[in-house]
Amino acid sequence: MNVTELVMGGDAALFMSGMNAHLLDFLASGYNYWMAVVLMMIGFYITLTRSNLVKKIIGLNLFQTAMFLLYISIGNVANGTVPILTDKPGALYSNPLPHVLILTAIVVGIATTALGLALAVRIHEAYGTIEEDEILDAEAGDS
């Protein structure tokens, strides 16, 4: 009984003294992921609430870039280097697989963004506006 109390107390003291270090470790272990999620949600919010189509596309782009950051964060290895083979023995490389996936995703992203912007331009030519609610009003007026 006495011993257990001692151990418990010792643990608590250790916990108190090491809490700052623990907290920092904890923050560092997930900081990148959380910040990427925050950015992602800002992009999501822009896409949901803005009625301007160009702004919506920019919001989608934010979302996409945040996703890239999250993906590359997952592939990062502490003390690793750029995944280009060197002669140095025992070099630790970051995971090249997310890099490949994101590299192609970026270029596909710009292609689809261009398509979206082209659609916005055509909508502007047809309706004279790129505000979503005004387009809906025009649609309702037609029918």
Binding site: V107, I110, A111, A114, L117, A118, V121
Partner: peptide, 16 residues
């Protein structure tokens, strides 16, 4: 492909 598509897209916008 990438070079041609990007120039093509730019010109499509620029022509308008």
């Amino acid at each position: 492909t990438v070079a041609c598509v990007v120039v093509m897209v730019f010109r499509a916008f620029a022509d308008h």
